[in-house]
């Protein structure tokens, strides 16, 4: 009898206990679908992405959408106030969300957000970094790893070039950004575990 759904891709963390697990799931799906569509539109605009096989485009998006959303929606996590803004625009404090069952994932999201925001990336840098997050040749189920790898290398070179140009005295930013990739994987794994728990025990 879950009463809360502490994902900011909802309008609210409160779940109507009268509703069935299926209808809760349907509403949740309707809430996050526009954000997923935006990720797909973003992917289509990455030069070279549409040249990958359709199978690999889907595989990359399936594996990486959550990580892209984490990067895109860091603004929902207010590190100073320790609040999370849900889709309705309403803010909830970490303490309130924790009382609703949010645990390690929430803490890790704040840690990631704080470190990423500290880099003060421009919109262009953030966009290119997001493309690097999405186009990862080590995702499972890819049929043409070499093509994905070639695109990944092109994007990483472009990111390094942009960071070097914009921050000539702070090349460590590029290294720090690449080190965010395993952090995102870790968040993705934690999120997947939560989803599995939710699906099995809605």
């Amino acid at each position: 009898n879950r009463m809360h759904l502490v994902c900011p891709m909802n309008t609210s963390p409160y779940v109507d206990p009268q509703k069935s697990g299926h209808s809760i799931w349907e509403e949740f799906s309707m809430s996050f679908t526009p954000a997923v569509r935006e990720v797909v539109e973003f992917a289509k605009r990455i030069p070279g992405f549409k040249d990958l096989s359709q199978h690999d485009q889907v595989s990359l998006l399936k594996a990486g959408t959550f990580e892209v959303l984490v990067v895109r929606f860091t603004s929902l996590f207010n590190v100073k106030e320790r609040t999370v803004t849900f889709l309705s625009g309403r803010k909830y404090s970490v303490e309130v969300l924790r009382s609703m069952g949010a645990g390690d994932l929430l803490n890790s999201m704040f840690d990631f957000t704080e470190k990423l925001q500290a880099l003060n990336l421009s919109e262009e840098e953030m966009s290119l970094f997001t493309a690097v997050v999405l186009v990862s040749a080590d995702r499972s189920g890819l049929e043409n790893v070499n093509s994905v790898e070639a695109l990944q290398e092109t994007l990483i070179r472009a990111l390094r070039s942009l960071i070097t140009k914009n921050h000539p005295n702070e090349i460590a930013i590029f290294t720090k950004l690449l080190l965010k990739l395993p952090d995102l994987r870790s968040l993705n794994n934690m999120h997947s575990e939560q989803l599995l728990a939710f699906k099995v025990h809605p």
Partner: peptide, 27 residues
């Protein structure tokens, strides 16, 4: 339930968005 992305219906949303689903446009 071994694939959380499939559980979410993510693959379906992704495929439709990639292909520019006609049914959704009619809606």
């Amino acid at each position: 339930f071994s694939d959380p992305a499939s559980n979410l219906g993510l693959e379906d949303i992704i495929r439709k968005a990639l292909m520019g689903n006609m049914e959704e446009k009619q809606e």
